[in-house]
Design a protein around this nucleic acid. Sequence first.
DNA 1: AATGTTATGTTATATTATATCATCATTTAA
DNA 2: TTAAATGATGATATAATATAACATAACATT
Lengths: 144, 144
Amino acid sequence: MADREKHPNTPRITKNARLVLDILRQVGQPLTAYEVLDRIRPQGITAPTTVYRALERLVECGLIHRLETLNAFVSCGREEVHGPSAIAICTDCHGVIEMQNDAVPGYLYGWAETKDFTVTSLTIEILGQCSQCRIKPEPNVDSE
Amino acid sequence: MADREKHPNTPRITKNARLVLDILRQVGQPLTAYEVLDRIRPQGITAPTTVYRALERLVECGLIHRLETLNAFVSCGREEVHGPSAIAICTDCHGVIEMQNDAVPGYLYGWAETKDFTVTSLTIEILGQCSQCRIKPEPNVDSE
DNA sequence: AATGTTATGTTATATTATATCATCATTTAA
DNA sequence: TTAAATGATGATATAATATAACATAACATT
Ligand SMILES: [Zn+2]
Ligand SMILES: [Zn+2]
Ligand SMILES: [Zn+2]
Ligand SMILES: [Zn+2]
């Protein structure tokens, strides 16, 4: 995980963005803005606005991703800063698997072009169950 | 647009679902649940719950799609009931273009399989500007 | 120091979504 | 043909997510 923070043409990482990024990286799983807020309160942050500003900045930097299907944010799982990529999210354990290539975005950009559509953002999310959670299901299943 | 309402293994279309579906089809563009509510008030519907229930049902029937990036719902643009498909959404005019093939979902299912990930839902959304809106930009642009 | 700019803090509010429980309608079966 | 069960609707309240608006602080440039 190189020095992505210094990538050009990207907003700089401010104090609050740093705090939020550290939390998301440490957790390694998606957190909602309010879950971030709860974990950042000890640092004196009390307002959603503050968290949302930091999250927005980190998204712009490409250091985290917003998951539209969860209304949550997760730190990027790829080595280099990149454009949109597909992300699979386990609805049981909230683990994420980020696709390491740009095949799907590439296809979508191509298709958009044929429609004369100018892409500003792509969202590709897969909800389901990871292998671990399929093997070991949630304890509270009704065994009927 | 055939008799998709009678598709098997799918919830039936109740009175409220019918009302909501008619609105979404007539509008032809994404509406939020509360925008639907506003338009359905004349029919005596007053509560968000009622609208969300109808929307959920229609999604299950495959007659409408939920757009995660807009928190909105739009009537399906394909001829036959289908699985997930990619949807481009113009952020200016809110027009939508639904991809008419399943190439991307197919690829994603395949990839998920290689990760031993069981897919329950796919979200593929493209935000940007349609050709019309690129030609004729919003009037309130600062011409500086 | 004065100025402009960016980041942060603070308060309030808007928007989106669900929980809960009561009532009504429709089906099923005794 | 009623009683029970099921499914749909209605009604109220509240939870969860997100932004608006404005004030202050930090920082850079001159
Ligand atoms: Zn990433
Ligand atoms: Zn899992
Ligand atoms: Zn469709
Ligand atoms: Zn448009």
